[in-house]
Design a protein around this nucleic acid. Structure first.
Lengths: 329, 329
DNA sequence: GATGTGTGTGTAATCGATTCCATATCGCTT
DNA sequence: AAGCGATATGGAATCGATTACACACACATC
């Protein structure tokens, strides 16, 4: 490996001057600059980022903590983040918690040890130890998808999205609406979306029977099973519509209904949330809500870069959404 | 920031001893070890990876270069890589070339400057400058998706996959088979899959009319447009089947056909390649080929780790595949 | 001619770890 | 009693950059 010292010797200057040339600061004569550049190009010298970041305490790396790496949402968000930070010369260091809350904390510390300049967390839960770890890290921090107290957060408007969707279903004349959700460990998807649905139903004067509710784990299969359960336990009084909290589970639910010969939306209407690419191409195309995940990622990145420049703006931003009406309801 | 020196002072030992405790090597008395561990835990000390990797020339980071970050294939592969490397304590540093070949080279150098321990490249093309950059980097290197001479490569068996698929279409009695592909800049998808198709057709004694071929850019929309073009320019002699080189384009093609009232597979049969999640849930479910992308990613990671351990095994591995017969043909 | 200001360059300390080498103590063998 | 190996610890060099500081020179100003 060639180092800055080698370059200095070859160009007949001190390493200080080489550093100045490379970083474009301080006074350097034109002749010295040229000599250095020439040697740098000839040797293909690449400065050591470890040494640099040991000295400067900055690494040019943004840490991203994902709940699950290979999901459509995650890859959209990461795409959005990357689009913004790569322009500024930053790289992304990816970590995947596999939905393990302990790992969130572990990774914050790990990213910290790697001297990342900031962290974006796709949050799925809130707890004190997590908040404490964030506080301790003293790093610019963005939470995406859940609001974390004291941390700049970008949240989806889960409550109102669910309200709008439910309202629309009601307007179509449905009254017997089933609910397929996820567990309440997830404050956004599990709690807020449910609350939006329930509140709206209540306001319409409709009570949601407990056996019209079922819960899955985000997977397509769990959507299938949830719908199966609802249908089986309501043979004599089946719902005419189902509000499903994610597109994937909605697709699973549709799969079961189609298998059983139900017509969608004729016999049962279905809605999802998330605007998965798939939602547009299944039959019938799924009515869903677009959360603009990529934009949310970009936004998160922008806020992080702002914080990096010292603007200490602790904010909460609510990402907007769009109801996409298609043929499933 | 607390450093190793602070810990040393607080535990009343030299920093040498602290280092030995943390890295579990050399002789350390039980009492010293306990004192050090106690202080480490109390302070929440996190060693600086920059300093460590400056000294040791290893960073615990694997660089991954993707052609496009937010695609199903990319996220599956990254998931596979992550599963393997995270177990060994490595992190992933992600870069996205946005299909720009110059950036591939740029990123190799950049990753090198970050002292990554190895690189996995999802290759989309081959050229001398790329090979040169890889050679220069002197890093453990894996190419995934294309064979790079002199570099350990994991390739999909594009040729035989295409052959098998074409054979199956022929066995179903089709003779008028359209082809929807991508440009030949992509040696794997653009060239190999086409060759597999063409060779098989030729062997069956069927010439493929030039106006039964159309080319897209991997997007769903381009599949739609390609099919539209084929249908429009063959009004009097339409094909009865179409071999499409990716699932997404196949889905676009189906979209057009459905819109125009064609029955699939009754009027026209369709096949894809890639086993996108979506392929299973559209109507009719798409016959396609599963390349086991996640396994390929894991395999790449394993080979890289092997190389890191000095086993300098330059190999070429051909990933197997599976034809998934569904209802679109 | 003294003083100040703008350029240009180098010396040396520094960042936070690892690791080679030296040193010390202890128990055991010959 | 001398010598040896195992255990335990610390001193100091080292990795490759950045940067505070000192110095030197040229030129303008009063």
């Amino acid at each position: 490996m060639t180092t800055i010292n080698d370059i200095a010797k070859m160009a007949n200057v001190s390493r200080t001057t080489v550093s100045r040339v490379l970083n474009n600061n301080g006074y350097v004569s034109e002749s010295a600059r040229k000599r250095v550049m020439k040697v740098v190009e000839e040797t293909g010298y690449i400065p050591s980022v470890s040494a640099k970041s040991l000295r400067t305490k900055r690494s040019g790396v943004i840490g991203v903590i994902l709940p699950k790496i290979s999901t459509e949402t995650a890859s959209r968000v990461v795409g959005g983040i990357n689009e913004v930070v790569s322009k500024e010369g930053f790289q992304i260091l990816l970590t995947d918690t596999e939905l393990n809350h302990e790992k969130e904390i572990e990774y914050i510390r790990l990213l910290q040890s790697r001297h990342v300049d900031g962290i974006i967390l796709l949050a799925t839960n809130v707890n004190d130890r997590l908040l404490h770890a964030i506080e301790e890290s003293k790093l610019p921090f963005i939470s995406l998808g859940q609001e974390l107290p004291g941390v700049t957060s970008i949240v989806y408007d889960d409550y109102h999205a669910a309200v709008d969707m439910t309202t629309m279903i009601l307007q179509k004349g449905h009254e017997k609406i089933a609910y397929i959700g996820v567990g309440e460990e997830d404050p956004a998807v599990g709690v807020l979306r449910k609350k939006g649905f329930m509140d709206t139903m209540e306001k319409a004067g409709i009570t949601v029977e407990e056996n019209w509710c079922s819960y899955g784990d985000f997977s397509i299969e769990s959507g299938y099973e949830s719908m199966k359960q609802i249908i089986n336990s309501n043979r004599e009084n089946p719902p005419t519509a189902a509000f499903v909290v994610t597109d994937r589970m909605a697709i699973g639910a549709m799969e079961y209904l189609k298998e059983q010969g139900y017509r969608i939306p004729g016999d049962i209407a279905i809605t999802g949330i998330g605007a998965a690419v798939m939602s547009k191409y299944i039959t019938p195309p799924l009515t869903t809500i677009d959360y603009f995940n990529k934009d949310a990622g970009s936004k998160a990145a922008e806020l992080l870069l702002e914080q990096l420049q010292g603007k200490n703006t602790r904010k909460k931003i609510t990402q907007n959404y769009r109801l996409i009406k298609r043929d499933s309801v």
